[in-house]
Simulated assay, not measured.
Amino acid sequence: MTTTLTLVQGDITRQRADAIVNAANSSLLGGGGVDGAIHRRGGPAILAECRALRASCYSSGLPTGQAVATTAGELDALWVIHTVGPVHSTTEDRSGLLVSCYRESLRVADGLGARTVAFPAISTGVYRWPMEDAARIAVETVRTTETAVEEVRFVLFDEQAYAVFTGQLR
């Protein structure tokens, strides 16, 4: 089966999908950007499950490139898949970790039975990954990863990110 890739410019917390991917920080306890927005709009149920994950299997935090799911709380989704993107480096190739964020998120989505998954542009905010490279990695990875997910929706916050991702889908 082929996964359909779509683009939306807007707020990922307003998406209706089986799973919304959170560009989380390793603490899983919320933060800025997409992470903070998802925790704020999703409400306390997400934070409660994240705290339980920290108390059990992720006492040191979620490792970069890995993914784990929680409830979506008050979001219009069933689950939030939290993944920790790498901080961009000009001296070390961390692209494999960014690839892993997308692959692991799709693996978790498959385990949940999710058919629609909304992704942000992982690592492009405070982690400073260049948008052009991040878009190339995201689109290539999703296109080449075996998954039962029927639709992957990239939800881009601004016009510039939307334009860059549009170029990658051609």
Rank of each mutant, 00 (worst) to 15 (best):
G42R: 12
R14I: 00
T4Q: 07
G32P: 05
G31K: 03
Q160W: 06
P44N: 10
G36K: 12
G85P: 11
V68T: 11
Y102K: 13
Q160H: 13
L28A: 04
L53V: 07
A77S: 14
T166S: 14
G96Y: 01
V8K: 12
S123T: 04
A114P: 10
F165A: 03
T13I: 06
I20A: 09
V34E: 01
D110P: 07
R94E: 08
I46K: 00
V126T: 15
E146I: 08
S100T: 07
W129N: 05
T90E: 09
G30S: 01
V126Y: 13
D93R: 13
F157P: 04
L98G: 11
A72Q: 11
T144C: 05
N25Q: 11
P86E: 15
G73N: 14
E132Q: 15
T3M: 02
R14A: 15
M1A: 05
A37P: 04
H88R: 08
R170F: 04
M131S: 10
W129M: 07
T2E: 10
D76A: 14
V149I: 03
V142T: 11
T6I: 03
L53K: 09
G10I: 07
A109W: 04
T64R: 06
D93K: 11
A77D: 14
S27R: 02
A19K: 05
C57W: 00
D93I: 13
Q168P: 06
L7A: 02
F157Q: 08
T4V: 06
T4R: 10
A134V: 14
T90P: 03
G65A: 12
R143M: 11
T64P: 06
A114S: 14
V142E: 08
S123P: 01
S105V: 06
R136H: 15
I81L: 03
V164W: 04
M131F: 03
L28N: 03
Q9C: 00
E146K: 10
A69V: 04
C57R: 14
